[in-house]
Write a protein that binds this DNA or RNA. Structure first.
Length: 444
RNA sequence: GCGCCGGUCGGAUAGCGGCUAUUCCAGGGGACUGUAAAUCCCCGGCCUUCGGGCAUCGUUGGUUCGAGUCCAACCCGGCGCA
């Protein structure tokens, strides 16, 4: 993997670049489509590609449980398995430490809403008896499978081994995503753990990458041999590893983490790029990203993990983020919420049942070129499978292309103008005319 | 006309003498940020000072401390017999 910066955004940390992987280029900043179980839910690869997506991300935890990383390896890696010809990434399972751990069964998401930031630092009350599917141990994390209840112990080494079997172009170190509601003491402990795990992830990664090709998982003659495997990797096909910065909402911890993660090495070999992780309070996100990106080495790509609302994309890019991934475009799409330039709409609302215009008049996506709001609303009311597909196509196109437009605006020296113009309409649609709503004519 | 069965929210249901009448669907609104998610939450008779208050199980009476539940008559629907 190579990363080349083409242009920097004046007066900020932002930049435009290109990541070159064995399976193609990623023009950064870029939005990564999330395909947890080696599929972008409800979409086939052609639809994903047509929406403008360059790179997709699968998940270690899910694919390890089902169908098993050996199967994916046997298929020739995640890309071949899912028939995605472009670049691929896998997450390490670190997020599941959070979502299946402290967040399990609670009304707790990756983004915390708070009006009073002081509420974020309560005492860490001891609720170790609360039901959870992930428990953090000395060396790693024990997961109770959400599928069949079986117990699995994931260590940094195990996560990296699984990811090498999955065979993505870019993989992540195993980390612990903490809740911002944790107190300082816990954040420090967790951060120290994440750093130890980062070191061990890198060691295991290099060990695997340095192993002879014939012994490498996807090397054809390696430790996992499958008759049907069609993998013919070359040396350059081995993955790049990104380390993950954590540290909650504490400036000192975030900065410390950025420094340590960027300095971690094995015999002079460092991480190829970086992830910025954590569960955030929305208000804290921009400062946290800025603290971190001021310290991370400029010449390596940075991935803001799991973030992807339009306003977050502007914030991240302005503060030096190169990659984003987020489930929102597809999850919102399946759940009936659709992005428009004047804000999100809930397509099942009564007012759209007779709205025969497209979701967005000037949108170039497949959905907008052929289908009306009324039809999509009808599909959702009828619980038809196509509903989630059409909505996901539009949402993915909307977000991916927003990032592309932001990229172009930097190249054109118009980032700040574009940001102001877009957010004004998106956040405060009432400020300008809103032709999107109540549009009852055909514009195909 | 006689006999039997049945009438509970827009629809379908549970409820067999006891506290706030159940659940599903349809309807309305909302949430969702490295996917435990084509998922989840809220609303749905009237009034409210947001604490709650008053109604309501076809109708009208009755029995009872207490009735959607038991009894009677009536209304409506289904089936059977004439």
């Amino acid at each position: 993997m190579k990363f080349k910066i083409q242009k920097k955004l004046n007066g900020s940390l932002g930049r435009v670049g290109v990541i070159t992987t064995p399976h193609g280029e990623i023009h950064t900043p870029a939005f990564v489509a999330v395909g947890t179980k080696a599929t972008i839910k409800s979409l086939n690869p052609e639809q994903v590609r047509e929406a403008g997506v360059e790179v997709v991300l699968g998940n270690t935890y899910h694919l390890y449980l089902q169908p098993g990383d050996e199967v994916v390896c046997g298929a020739g890696g995640i890309g071949k398995f899912m028939n995605w010809k472009g670049p691929t990434m896998t997450d390490s399972g670190g997020f599941q430490v959070f979502s299946l751990g402290v967040a399990y069964g609670k009304d707790m998401s990756k983004i915390l809403k708070v009006t009073d930031p002081s509420l974020l630092i309560p005492e860490r009350f001891d609720d170790n008896d609360a039901p959870r599917l992930a428990k953090i141990g000395q060396d790693g994390v024990s997961f109770k499978s959400h599928l069949d209840g079986s117990i699995h112990y994931i260590t940094p080494e195990k996560s990296v081994q699984i990811q090498h079997n999955l065979g993505a172009d870019i993989i992540f170190a195993f980390d612990e995503c903490t809740s911002p509601a944790e107190d300082m003491k816990y954040q420090e402990e967790a951060l120290e753990r994440t750093h130890r795990w980062a070191q061990r992830s890198l060691e295991e990664h290099l060990k695997l990458n340095d192993s002879p090709l014939e012994e490498y998982p996807l090397g054809g003659g390696g430790k996992i041999i499958h008759p049907g495997a069609s993998a013919t990797p070359q040396e350059g096909n081995k993955p790049a590893l990104f380390g993950i910065v954590q540290g909650g909402r504490e400036e000192s911890l975030r900065k410390q983490s950025a420094k340590i993660i960027s300095e971690i090495n094995v015999d002079g070999k460092y991480f190829d790029g970086f992830g910025i992780g954590g569960s955030f309070a929305k208000e804290d996100m921009s400062t946290a990203v800025k603290w971190v990106n001021e310290i991370l080495p400029e010449e390596k790509p940075r991935h803001l993990l799991g973030i992807g609302e339009p306003e977050d994309l502007f914030m991240g890019i302005e503060n030096g983020v190169d990659l984003f991934d987020c489930v929102l475009p597809t999850r919102l799409g399946r759940n009936g919420t659709i992005y428009t330039k004047t804000g999100k709409i809930i397509i099942m609302n009564t007012k759209f049942r007779n709205d025969f215009g497209p979701v967005e008049k000037d949108c170039e996506c497949y959905t907008c070129k052929g289908y009306s709001r009324a039809y999509i609303a009808h599909l959702f009311h009828g619980k038809e499978m196509l509903a989630g597909t059409l909505a996901s196509i539009h949402n993915l196109h909307f977000i991916v292309n927003l990032v592309k437009k932001i990229r172009q605006s930097i190249l054109d020296d118009k980032f700040f103008e574009f940001k102001e113009e877009f957010l004004k309409k998106y956040i405060h649609p009432g400020a300008s005319a809103t032709p999107q709503e109540g549009n009852n004519t055909l514009h195909f």
